[in-house]
Design a protein around this nucleic acid. Sequence first.
DNA 1: TTGAAAGCGCTACCAA
DNA 2: TTGGTAGCGCTTTCAA
Lengths: 329, 329
Amino acid sequence: MVTIRDVAKEAGVSVATVSRVLNETGYVHEDTRKRVMDTMKELNYSPNEVARSLYKKKSKLIGLLLPDITNPFFPQLARGVEDEMQKQGFRLLFGNSDEQPEKELDYIHTFVQNNVVGIISATNHTSKTNYQDLSIPVVFLDRTSNDYPSVYADGKEGGKIAAEEMVRRGSKRITLLKGPAHIQPAQDRFQGALEYLSQSNVDFHVIATTSFAFEDAEKWAKELFDTYPDTDGVLASNDIVATAVLHEALRLGRSIPTDVQIIGFDDIPQSSLLFPSLSTIRQPAYEMGKEAAALLIKLMRKEPVQQKHIQLPVTFIKRETTREVEIND
Amino acid sequence: MVTIRDVAKEAGVSVATVSRVLNETGYVHEDTRKRVMDTMKELNYSPNEVARSLYKKKSKLIGLLLPDITNPFFPQLARGVEDEMQKQGFRLLFGNSDEQPEKELDYIHTFVQNNVVGIISATNHTSKTNYQDLSIPVVFLDRTSNDYPSVYADGKEGGKIAAEEMVRRGSKRITLLKGPAHIQPAQDRFQGALEYLSQSNVDFHVIATTSFAFEDAEKWAKELFDTYPDTDGVLASNDIVATAVLHEALRLGRSIPTDVQIIGFDDIPQSSLLFPSLSTIRQPAYEMGKEAAALLIKLMRKEPVQQKHIQLPVTFIKRETTREVEIND
DNA sequence: TTGAAAGCGCTACCAA
DNA sequence: TTGGTAGCGCTTTCAA
């Protein structure tokens, strides 16, 4: 390993001078600068980030905490974060929490131990206790917060739009799948849909669910058509659940969207590949990741930010699990 | 931030002693050990990993380099790696290379600058030049290598099995989608299929493809049925491409699997959710990730490893894009 | 059984 | 314009 001393010796200068050309701070004569640069190249030197981090008490690392990267919604988020961070010279320390407070705590802890300069967290389970003692900026992603900067999609509006489209497209007996109670975005979209349906003149039922796993979703789907066989419209808490409902409906011989309409949430990549392809409310996951990264960077640089809570719009993606309507479609 | 000095002062001992109880090295009297432990708890002390890393020239970080986490095959891999690493106390520095040599080089570089103790790389594009100067162990994942330890699925066998099943299930005019030339696993499965088909008595064609992106795959799919309209069996280079072929076949009114059989590769999560669900060759992605992590850990600990090249078996997953056969099915 | 002190590679201060 | 040096928080000799 070649250190700053080696470069200094080889170039016939002090380590201080090498440090100066390295960081472009202070005065360095052009000639010596060139000489130092040359020897750095010659020796293939590159600074030890750990030593830098120790002295400056800050690294170029940021911590990214997700619930579970194998949930198809999160890779896009992660990629958005990474692309923005990479562009700005930051690297990612990455962990999955599985929405388990201990794991979350543990990762936050090791992030701090490694001098990360900022954290992006997309977890939902825990209260703010994990984060309040931190001296570094934190941005919550896919989750709102009064206490911390956050980037999220307008879940409530999304729920409303979904309900609206479903009613507009003629469903009369709607079943609403309420997502896990501890997942805030799921509750937002549920509330949005609920409010709309409450003041509309259609029948509706609510089924409470507790996870987003496909295997669980298959059970809710069965329960749904068991309990409410005359359902002609399903508002699912996300695309995974919607997919399970679609499967079950098909299995039962229902015609989609003629007998039953289905609207999902998220617009994960596979939703357009289903048959019939899934109508859904799209969250701009990649953009959310990018926005969160950009916000965190501003915060870390102590640049003024007027908007600490960035809400991104959701859009209805009309595909084949909803019917056509004559006007405005 | 509370440091080892603070603990030492508060406990009335030297930093050396605190370090000893921290690392459980050397002699420490039970009483003082207890006292130190108590003050550590009291002050809520936890060691600065950066300082440790600087002194010991090794961290608890490992670098994970993937082509692209938004490709549905990789989240499972990543999760396997993470779960095993997390269990052993290692954390992940994570990056996507997009199969671009510069990005790959850049990430490897910053991994090293941050004192990672090992690297897992699932990239395919570049030669070994990036890795040969490293003093830390490297494990290649989803890729074979003569020079480095590696964990991969038996792609060639997978290709063979796919071809075999397709012929066994009655396809006579098979089209083989050859994956990107620079993606080694794609070439392995292609070779396996090619060898089998060559010595079987069915007609077959080969179409060269250059990416795994769905949008590109849609073009190959169109080209396929344009150029070889009498194709009655498609061996796709992976499930994404298979999905595009499935869509196109359906769009053209072909009956699946009666008119055309399709077999994919990977068994990404969405493959079972398609309609009809996709028959495919399954790679055990999660296990591959775990194996790679376990192997890397052994290597880092300089434990003896008899198997530096771990090949995991692939399996044919019979679903709805292949026909039934009478015997042995 | 304990403590003093050197040193990991770097930055930044102060002096020259 | 440059160099000497203290010190970031920790581990590990070496001596007591």
